[in-house]
Design a binder for these strands. Structure first.
Length: 259
DNA sequence: ATGGCCTGATCTTCAGGA
């Protein structure tokens, strides 16, 4: 089974590339983030023509997540149970489903914006709720993984220059502790291969030639439990999808499972 | 081959992204 996670930065803007990539990559299950559309606007019909079912949690211009699958889509849970509100409402940042015997979550963790901003505390609370929500499945005997845009670089090796990120979100001890707490439920980081250069970055800013200069970050992660991790045959960042006109600023992370 | 931001709405300017 080929399973992937990809922050598409608007499914409307990305649809031609998304459809082409699903076909060319042979992906069976895609955890997608930043749909940036309403549920009604989600391209369910186009995806169905390619053979994919879709479970969608999307409410409009911001956020929005989905699980696409051509190997079954069952036991869908929309949203993060016990998740915190932001400005009085739950945001569409999580959805989970069972696809071909593997249970997956697609998550878009809050950005945090600035360590002084309310969004940063919201981000840490969101991680606590995620840990509590996945703990039982993480410790279970069935293959299980949380895939998505975590908006945290796990180590200094996961950013192109740690000095640039001093004092900024995505690298703080509290955010990295939140990742560690999540792993403590029984999950491990499935680190992908880079297809070029030495680090498996998954995000490069659109600005300042960051991609050609490989000024990237590894913030799109696959955290799998033991049955999932032991089934991993290969994992890589498909940086080809970051190239050219109409690319997302994130590349897909692809995992091949012996399932 | 990889190119000095992109996206959608509040729409000609802005918030948010990270």
């Amino acid at each position: 089974m080929r399973i992937a996670t990809w922050n598409v930065n608007s499914i409307g803007a990305r649809l031609p590339r998304l459809l082409a990539w699903l076909e060319s990559s042979g992906t069976d299950v895609l955890c997608l983030q930043e749909a940036k559309c309403t549920a009604e606007q989600f391209p369910t019909a186009e995806l169905r023509e390619l053979g994919y079912e879709a479970a969608v949690n999307a409410t409009g211009r911001w956020n929005g997540v989905a699980v696409l699958s051509r190997v079954g889509l069952d036991q869908v849970v929309t949203g993060l149970p016990g998740g915190p509100d932001y400005e009085g409402a739950q945001e569409p940042r999580a959805i989970s489903a069972t696809c071909g015997g593997v249970r997956v979550w697609s998550v878009y963790v809050p950005n945090g914006r600035d360590v002084e901003h309310d969004h940063y505390g919201y981000k840490l609370r969101w991680f606590e709720a995620l840990r509590d929500a996945v703990a039982a499945d993480a410790a279970g005997d069935l293959p299980f993984a949380v895939l998505g845009d975590y908006n945290v670089a796990p180590t200094d090796e996961d950013v192109y220059d740690p000095a640039v990120f001093e004092g900024l979100t995505h690298v703080t001890p509290a955010e990295r502790a939140a990742l560690a707490a999540l792993r403590d439920t029984g999950l491990s980081d499935v680190v992908p291969r880079p297809l070029k250069y030495d680090r498996p970055y998954t995000y490069w800013d659109y600005r300042q030639l960051c991609f050609p200069k490989n000024r990237g970050m590894r913030i799109d992660l696959v955290y799998g439990n033991a049955p999932f991790a032991s089934a991993v045959k290969d994992a890589y960042v498909d940086r080809e999808e970051r190239k050219g006109k109409g690319a997302s600023d994130h590349a897909p992370v692809v995992v091949d499972l012996d399932i």
